[in-house]
Structures are given as C-alpha cells and as structure tokens.
Design a protein around this nucleic acid. Structure first.
Ligand code: MN
Ligand code: MN
Ligand code: ZN
Ligand code: ZN
Lengths: 147, 147
DNA sequence: AGTGCTATTGCAAAATGTTGCAATAAACCC
DNA sequence: GGGTTTATTGCAACATTTTGCAATAGCACT
C-alpha cells in the first residue's frame, strides 16, 4: 500500500503540479476504506464531490472531474462501470475484483476466489493479460432469476 | 430470435402500452444488425436517437431515455457499460460477449471463445449463473502495456 | 363509436457533465 | 524573495440526462 507521499511523487514524475484539490483527492482515495458509508474500496463520484466541497469550499466541479480523469490516466484509480452506475477503486490496493451482476434482479455479488484465480491464470496464458489489478464483471442470471 | 409481434406481447404482458415510440424502438433494436455503421449487435444511444428523431420527428428526448430504461427492465435489451461509454444489446440474440479492456491503453478486444466456454461452465457450476446471455468484461493490462 | 381509466408523453426546470479560454498559481531558477 | 514559465483552475457557455407534473392518448368496456 503506497503512502500519500509516494503518490505525490507519481504526480511530479508526470509533470503535474501538486494543488490543494489534488492533495485532498489523494487523501480521500487513500482514506476511503475508513470513511463511513463507503463500501470497502468503492469510491463514488458523489462521495468524492461531497468530500471535496466540504474540505475545499467553492472548488469547481470541472476541476473535480478533470482530476478524477487525470488520476485514472496515471493509473492511481480505476473506474468500474456497471449499468447501475460506476465507481472508482484505488489501484494500488491490488485487490482483485470480481462481480456478478444479475441482469434480471440487478443483484451484484462477489465471486468465488478460487475460480477467479483459475480464470486469471488462463487469461494470462491465452491473452497475455497481466495478473495485477485484473477486474472482471459478469453479467448473467442468478439461480433465482435464471432461465 | 423473437419477432416484432412477440415483443409487443411482452409489453402487453407487463401492462405497458404500445405507442409509436415503442413500436419504432423495437423495430430499430430488431433491425440493428442490418443498419450500416452499427457494429454487429451494438446499439448506441446516439444511433437510437438519430433513428427515432428521423422516423418520429419531435419525439422528446426524455421519452427515448425512459423507453430505453423500460426495455432494460423488461430484459429486452441489456446495457454493457465500459469506462469509455456504454451500448445496448438485444438480449434475445443470445450472443455471448466477452471483452478485454486494457486499463492502460484503453484498447478493447474480443476474447477467446474456448476460454469463454470454460468460464461459462465453471460459473454455472459454482455460482448457479445461467448460461444464456452471459457477458463478461475483463479489466487488465494487455501484453504491450502489462507490468 | 363513445366513455373512463391511467400509462405515457411533452414540457420546463433541475441536475449532472463537458469544453474553450483567460486568470491564477505551482514550480523552478536566479 | 522576485521573475518566468506553463499547468491548473474558475468561469461561462454548452451538452446531456433526470425529474415532476399536467396534457395526451392507448386500451378495455360498453
Ligand atoms: Mn444511465
Ligand atoms: Mn465519464
Ligand atoms: Zn437475479
Ligand atoms: Zn494496453
């Protein structure tokens, strides 16, 4: 798990300036597990905006959006998109993510870890996909709704 | 592959009225493979809007959005969401979808069918996920960008 | 065909995202 | 600290999406 300082270095290494908005956004991302009301590792745009407007009153919405995009490009966070909306994850968590979304009832559940590891290995073999930070989203029908 | 008539029955069975906007939207979904400029089975919001405004001049945008949502709920179409945007698929196509999204370069590619079938089988065993209309999105690093 | 019920639409306002540009301020050198 | 460079911000205009509500129209029943 990287520290705040390390991430600031990532910015510098990419010719990006360290502004208050970016400091706080990094802090929020790193602390996201501690915040109440946020599912482990899942950062929503709403939660970011709430935090930023509180800690930096008057911050412009476009700056928030642009910094989120910038952090995505730097691979500090990744965006996971689901039909119900999207959220962000801190990439250096190195936590694998593996969702099942039922197309009928919409229920999202976390997958079986053993199966995930198998798929991960097969993916690397066949497609050359690197193992780190792989995320998978399955869309199907759960046993309750299944055809 | 269902026909237009069958889908109208789906609407009726769900206490929904058959309006011109819905007729045409259904038609567009069923015909989407024939339309030029649309990748097989991938219907975008833009393509829907273009079609609807042409065939039903003056149709309100909110009606288009609401009917798309309604058809999703009826499971006539499904929305596939990627960080770069989302698109819709006609569910009764029963075509499986299987994407690789590189988190670094953003490239999306279609997966190996054999591997997909294996995963599909395993998913059914372990999670009770039904085989029909399964879609998978993998987020990782391609061999070019991989760590 | 006419009537009643209510799902659907259009409309207007609000909310949410995006973009070009000029003012600002972070970073670096002296 | 003062001066220079230019990445970043705020702002305003625009585009897209969502929402409440009143008018409309699909449909069932006579
Ligand atoms: Mn949506
Ligand atoms: Mn976006
Ligand atoms: Zn379900
Ligand atoms: Zn790549």
């Amino acid at each position: 798990m990287k520290k705040h300082k390390d991430l600031l270095q990532v910015l510098k290494a990419n010719n990006m300036r360290i502004t208050p908005a970016r400091r706080f956004l990094l802090q929020f991302i790193l602390d996201s597990k501690k915040h109440a009301g946020i599912k482990t590792g899942q950062i929503t745009l709403k939660s970011i905006t709430r935090f930023m407007e509180k800690i930096l009153p008057g911050v412009n919405r476009s700056s928030i959006y642009r910094n989120i995009e910038a952090f995505k490009k730097l691979d500090i966070i990744q965006e996971i998109s689901l039909p119900s909306g999207s959220f962000f994850q801190y990439v250096f968590d190195c936590k694998v993510h593996h969702f099942y979304i039922c197309k009928s009832c919409g229920k999202a559940s976390v997958g079986n870890e053993k199966l995930f590891n198998k798929i991960e290995a097969a993916l690397k073999d066949i497609h050359g996909f690197a193992k780190a930070n792989l995320s998978i989203v399955f869309y199907g029908y759960c046993s309750k709704c299944g055809h």
